[in-house]
Design a protein around this nucleic acid. Structure first.
Lengths: 209, 209
DNA sequence: GCGCTTATTATACGACTGTTCAACAACGAA
DNA sequence: TTCGTTGTTGAACAGTCGTATAATAAGCGC
């Protein structure tokens, strides 16, 4: 009877991805205390030393986890918007409907999740002092703002000019979105997700004035 | 020649306050890494053990630092609003002008400060898992929301009804304020503080529609 | 001056941190 | 089967962490 192998070798790429996913899980579950090589390696089911074999140091692992985390979020939102754009049906699926889809996606699972905020807070906390996180942030967070800005320019093209510069409109809408999302995650009892969506809808409608 | 005393005894109340202030300084300067008894005691100019003499444990010290931190913020904002209310001059100082003063105060020093966000992020990060922080949060953060809600009810009384429930208006305004403030602190290059104020003013003006 | 209270110090402890490194072993190639 | 590559392990290292504890001394009442 052949003895079972004690572990399975994997391609560096796969293993790195597994470690990144485990890192995100740990940050969502335990916040800042989850950002330790021992918790992460345990969550990934590997030994402690493997992290430093596949990543130069812990900061780089966390930075790549931030890239993946932000990428998944933006991809999910973009997918929801595209689905709305390509949807067939009676209703017209113009820029305004796409924005509504964006709002709905922002304020439903898996985005509206307290654990997600827990991870975000860890990344925000690292932003000031970790160059690796800063590098990823500059490249990744722009994608979110571009998505919002693109939808707003489309809206302005179809429904007439706003009462304020498009850049400012994007700033204001992302602030309202992030602020509502933050408030709800910090204290879900204050208001319901549908109310947050309604506030966003109202804000967009007030642009043409 | 009498030798100088090696240290100065202080009343527990004074020492506790000094330690709380040192804690806030450390959190603003170093984020989560500043939340260590060694850094805090060094910043306060005392030995390590003194913290556990005046506080049952570190969590309690941080929680009281949170209370003081939030209290100072709310007090500063309230003071700015009251100054506007009691100001003599040609312009009428009704609820609308008080809101403007509130916005100006929110988006100028010492409130609009990246270091302040650094401290906030630490507190947010503790909120999920530290009962001590939760206790303070429930009692302290309500003061901020009450302030906003009170100004909005005053405004509604003087300038006619809003197009949405007052509770929702307060939720939306605090979200917009916090979101703008968060965005600016994370990346001050995206927009100028005056633009944030303008967005808030515009949001309030759009309430009567 | 002496004595008492207690604020304050400094050390020690065990637990945890990130990183290094030598030994191990899985798995394809020859 | 044997070899070589290298993904993987786990112990060891030097730090830092929060807390407990004993020794110290400042400052007040007498």
């Amino acid at each position: 009877m052949a003895k079972a192998p004690r572990f399975e070798r994997q391609l560096p790429e796969e293993r790195r991805h597994a470690l990144i996913v485990a890192t995100i899980d740990c940050l969502k579950a335990h916040g800042h205390e989850g950002m330790s090589v021992r918790r992460i390696s345990a969550a990934a089911g590997v030994s402690i030393g493997l992290i430093n074999h596949h990543f130069p140091n812990k900061d780089e692992l966390v930075a790549q986890a931030y890239r993946h985390f932000n990428g998944e979020l933006v991809a999910g939102l973009r997918r929801a918007v595209d689905n709305e754009r390509l949807r067939s049906g009676a209703a017209r699926n113009g820029p305004r409907q796409q924005l509504s889809a964006f709002f709905r996606e922002s304020f439903t699972a898996p985005n509206l999740d307290r654990d997600v905020l827990t991870a975000w807070i860890v990344f925000w906390g690292l932003l000031r002092h970790s160059p690796a996180i800063q590098r990823v942030h500059n490249e990744a967070y722009g994608g979110y703002l571009d998505l919002v800005k693109h939808m707003l320019t489309d809206l302005e093209k179809h429904h007439g000019p706003f009462g304020l510069p498009c850049h400012l409109a994007a700033v204001g809408l992302t602030a309202l979105l992030d602020g509502l999302w933050l408030e709800w995650c910090l204290d879900p009892g204050t208001f319901r997700p549908e109310e947050a969506i309604a506030l966003c809808e109202r804000w967009v409608d007030a642009l043409h004035a």
